[in-house]
Structure formats: C-alpha cells, structure tokens
Nucleic acid binder design. Structure first.
Length: 329
RNA sequence: GGUGGCGUAGCCAAGUGGCCUAAGGCGACGGAUUGCAAAUCCGUUAUUUCGUCGGUUCAAAUCCGACCGCCACCU
C-alpha cells in the first residue's frame, strides 16, 4: 500500500498532487456543451481555461475543431489554443508539459485553472501521470509496421511476449499500435514497458476533487452532433481542408487524423464516386462513435464524477450549480 | 393487362438441394486505451430463421405452385 503511493509521481511525469488539487476539470463528449458551460462557470469563479483537447492546439484548423470563438476567448482567458502549426506533430507528453506550465502560471495570478475538454488520454495522464518513457521513433515504427504486415498478425505479439510477457498478455494480437510501442520502449531503454508503467491512482485524499464529466442523454447528444457537423459544413469545412491540403509542409500525422479533416481529405483525394452528402453523414457517424468512446474513458476514471444532464438543461443554471460545487477546494 | 427479374438481420449483401442450428461489410451496443488518442484495437449483435401459404424430397434459403410486395420492360 504505502510504497505504491510513494511511487506515484516519482518515476513518472506528472503534476504534483498539491498543485493538481487546485485545478477544476469539466470534461464531456463532443458537442455536449462544454464551451458554453465553461463560460457560465467563469461568471461565478475566477478561472482561466485550459483546453483539454488534442486538436484545438492546431493553428489554421478552425472550423472542424470547434474551438471557442474569438469572442468567447475574449470573455475568459483560454489556453491550449493555436499552439502549433498543422504540420507539427504532438503527443500527450507535449500536452502535459504545456499544461503544467500553464497551471503554475495561472495559480501565480491567484486564479483558478479550469481544464475543459474531452480527450480521455490527456485527462487520464493529467490525473494519474504518464510513465517515464522515450519519445516516438517513427522510422522504427514504420519498419515494424511493414514487417508485421509481411510476417502476419501474431508475429508482433510473439515479439512482445519474448521481452515483456506482462504487456503481451494485456494486449490483443491485433493491436499493432500498442505492440509496436512496447517494442519501441524496450529497444530504446532496454526495459520492458510494463516496468515503466507501474503506477497507481492517487489515494482519495490527494486527488483533485472537482472532476466532472457531462453525461447527457444519448439521443440528445447525437442530435446535437449531427446538427453541429452540418453547421461546420455550412461554415466552410471543405474549403478549410482544401486550404490545409495546400500547405507546404504537409499536414502532420496527428493533425490529419482529426474528425472531419480525415474524411474530407480522403474525399478530395479520391472521391470514388462518393457524394458529398455521404461524406457529411460519415463525419456525423464517426463523431457519434467517438463520443461513445469518450464516455468509456470517463466512466473508467474513479476520480471523475458523472454530471447527469436531462434533455432540456439550461446552461446558466447548470453552470451555476457546477460553479457552486467547484467553489471549495 | 402482359413478360422478365427480385424479396435473406436496422441497412448493404454472400449462399441456388445436405458442410446453412445462414459468410462478410456497415450500423448499433459494450469494452480496451500509459509519447499517433478526434487515432487505434477487441467483443456482442438473424424467436431451427431466409416475403406468405402449400407442395416435391430422406433432406429446401436453395426445386415447384399460388398469393403478397418491389423493380424493369412491353401494351
């Protein structure tokens, strides 16, 4: 028990529990109303918002990422927007480093850091820390991908089993991405990934207390998602993607996988007789599926409390309620 | 009115007499997730059921008949 607790935060990259405890978190699936709510909360609490989002960090990607508008950003200080160019890569680790410096800055201004967003991995890493492990070696990954398609599905799995049985047991043989990561870590450090990963959730008393995840009715959410995708299309999503395609350093691997961007790019590159309306529907479907996956993250984090919404919830009212809760430390 | 074609899960769709107590894809739902995470991966998903009823056969989603529905063409 005790040794485990001590290990947390020493071998990994994480924000000190005492600092983290002063932060507030409002997460939720896409289109659940986080932005509006965060602004409502800001009317009751002296917050600065740090977006908890893997896509709003990109400049020039405006429409598809549903960033808070300039007007909204002028009302409350926002961080985590427009940090890098679309041709740059990004990772959880980059996010955590950024978040930590922002949190410290905000606290030094006597203000309250409020994380708002939906990226599950980032949230988890913030709350639990990220194990100390080496950065990506893209060339190595590419080679392994190539080999695994050549040598068959179980090859990677067996390779991992040989050097890290714990991780191999945990991962599905088809999960190439994580198997490759396990091999990558071993090659770069000489130690199995599972050894790097030992970590536990902070004990109850040291966790951040205000982590809420919005849990709206499924039907309501899906309807909102569909409507929002339509709005993005009307606002010129296609033109935005065309502009991104014209960029000189091409759009990075991480940036091009954004919802809406990926589908439109594929369509522009090879329409394959597809109608534009089908592309729009595809984006809606994939966004709905994404929202569902997001909730799996939240449900899993015991630190996070569900904030149930009904289909006619009022922004101002719920905002006040959440702010009220967030009042005490 | 006539001729031909089709009718399999929420959708698309294989199967044309026994190995079908019915492939696959999509969707939906559930799960995973530790430097690509809006990504990626996994699982479940047809009241012996194949438009309905009847017949042939040891045996039918698969053959025959009638009926219902849809589509194409002809008049």
């Amino acid at each position: 028990m005790e040794p485990d607790q001590d290990r947390t935060g020493e071998a990994e990259f994480s924000i000190e529990p005492e600092v983290l405890r002063q932060c507030r978190f409002l997460v939720g699936p896409t289109a659940s109303g986080k932005t509006d709510l965060s602004l409502a909360i800001a009317r009751h609490l002296p917050v600065e918002i740090i977006l908890l989002d893997s896509m709003t960090i990109y400049q020039k990607m405006e429409i598809g990422t549903a960033k808070p508008t300039l007007l909204e950003r002028s009302q409350v200080v926002h961080h985590g927007v427009d940090l890098i160019e679309p041709w740059e890569e990004f990772s959880v680790r980059d996010y955590l480093e950024y978040a930590r410096t922002k949190v410290i800055e905000i606290l030094s201004r006597q203000r309250v850091p409020l994380f708002v967003g939906g990226t599950g991995l980032y949230l988890r890493s913030l709350l639990r820390g990220l194990c100390e492990s080496p950065p990506a070696d893209w060339e190595f990954r590419r080679q392994l991908e190539e080999q695994s398609t050549k040598l068959g599905a179980d090859w990677l799995h067996q390779e991992v089993a040989a050097i890290d049985p714990v991780t191999a047991a945990r991962l599905n043989a088809a999960d190439r991405r994580r198997l490759i990561r396990a091999l990558e870590v071993y090659r770069l450090t000489g130690r199995p990934l599972s050894e790097h990963q030992q970590q536990v959730a902070l004990p109850e008393g040291r966790r951040p207390r205000h982590v809420y995840w919005l849990n709206p009715p499924r039907d309501w959410l899906y309807a909102r998602i569909n409507a929002r995708v339509n709005q993005m299309v009307e606002a010129g999503l296609k033109a935005e993607v065309e502009m991104l395609r014209g960029l000189t350093p091409p759009v990075s691997r991480t940036a091009r996988q954004g919802l809406g961007y990926k589908e439109v790019m594929a369509f522009l590159e090879a329409p394959k007789g597809k109608r534009w309306e089908q592309v729009v529907e595809e984006i809606q479907t994939r966004t709905r599926q994404f929202a569902k996956r997001q909730m799996t993250w939240y449900r899993n984090l015991e630190e996070a409390k569900a904030w149930d919404l009904n289909s006619d919830w009022q922004i101002a009212q719920v905002g006040a309620e959440i702010a009220e809760k967030m009042q005490d430390i």
